[in-house]
């Protein structure tokens, strides 16, 4: 019985992980491509959820159109942060915090001054899929939806970052001085990357709200941390592969593994409120890892040098 419960939990983790992986792809764009830790995502994820839930639940809009609206809303959030940092020269982390904070108020307004929008009985994306494919389980319909959306986005990102514009965004993250000296306006490339990233984050939030059956005002709390954890786990999976396509696919795998770890810990009986602590610890260790590795290598090199010197001395 326990095994069945466990498998069911893992099945759920895969479904959740794929939907959240769209957010991870967004975080990857800012955190790794642009080299910009963007805290807007805690707000824009909730914005996407609020817009999507409001349009589907209260206005009866086509759920896919509602997701398109969530994507656009997220892009606006990204533009605001981009404008704050690129044009108003506010430091990146602070610009993200400002937008995120402002979005908290805005999201409640979007949700009609309520803390929660229930979607009971609303025509959501997974219900559309379950109508279209007879006998598909709710979890499998989520997985199907997630795989299709993630595949489209990965294909888009793979193409986009190979174009002239995409290359100049990558180069902005690698060396902004060089890019400016080659005639690229780094303000523009920064804004475009943030717009793209937050659009994906909000899309992810929009899908999540619909399949979960509600949007709450605190739905986005900790999104950035989950995104970073997923990116880092994905890179561990990636290992030494350097291609851009495997890298993007590993972001999805990282998101799924992250969810699986969380499900496992929950399954072992830890309260779900401890998850944020656990996630923070995972990231801290992962970010400490390169420093640790360097330290060990240095010490090993030192001992080797000492040993060689001693051996030479004896001879």
């Amino acid at each position: 019985m326990d095994i069945l419960n466990f498998l069911d939990a893992m099945h759920g983790a895969v479904a959740q992980g794929i939907i959240w992986s769209i957010m991870t792809l967004g975080v990857y764009i800012t955190f790794r491509v642009l080299d910009f830790p963007d805290l807007t995502v805690d707000g824009s994820f909730a914005t996407g959820a609020a817009v999507s839930a409001m349009l589907v639940g209260n206005h009866g809009m086509n759920p896919f159109l509602a997701l398109a609206a969530a994507l656009l809303a997220g892009m606006v959030c990204g533009f605001v942060t981009g404008f704050l940092t690129a044009k108003m020269k506010i430091p990146g982390i602070l610009a993200g915090i400002l937008t995120m904070t402002a979005l908290y108020s805005i999201n409640i307004r979007i949700m009609g001054m309520q803390a929660m929008i229930p979607l009971n009985g609303a025509n959501t994306v997974d219900i559309v899929i379950r109508h279209a494919i007879h006998g598909i389980s709710p979890k499998n319909s989520q997985i199907l939806l997630g795989v299709i959306v993630a595949a489209i986005i990965i294909a888009f990102l793979y193409w986009f970052f190979g174009t002239e514009l995409g290359c100049s965004i990558r180069a902005t993250g690698s060396n902004p001085y060089m890019v400016r000296s080659l005639g690229v306006n780094t303000d523009t490339t920064t804004i475009i990357a943030l717009v793209l990233s937050n659009g994906l984050v909000a899309l992810s939030g929009g899908i999540f709200a619909q399949v979960q059956g509600s949007a709450t005002v605190d739905i986005g709390i900790g999104t950035i941390v989950i995104g970073l954890a997923s990116v880092i786990i994905g890179e561990v999976v990636l290992g030494k592969h350097t291609g851009f396509l495997p890298r993007l696919i590993c972001m999805v795998i990282g998101s799924i593994i992250y969810r699986a770890i969380i499900s496992l810990v929950l399954f072992l009986g830890l309260p779900s409120t401890d998850m944020k602590l656990l996630t923070a610890i995972i990231i801290a260790i992962a970010l400490f890892f390169p420093t640790l590795k360097k330290g060990i290598q240095q010490r090993r090199g030192y001992h080797q040098a000492v040993n060689t010197a001693e051996t030479n001395g004896k001879e």
Binding site: G162, T163, E164, L165, G166, C167, S168, G183, V184
Partner: peptide, 9 residues
Amino acid sequence: GKPRTLRWG
């Protein structure tokens, strides 16, 4: 000196 477009890089 040229605009960056959506053509292949």
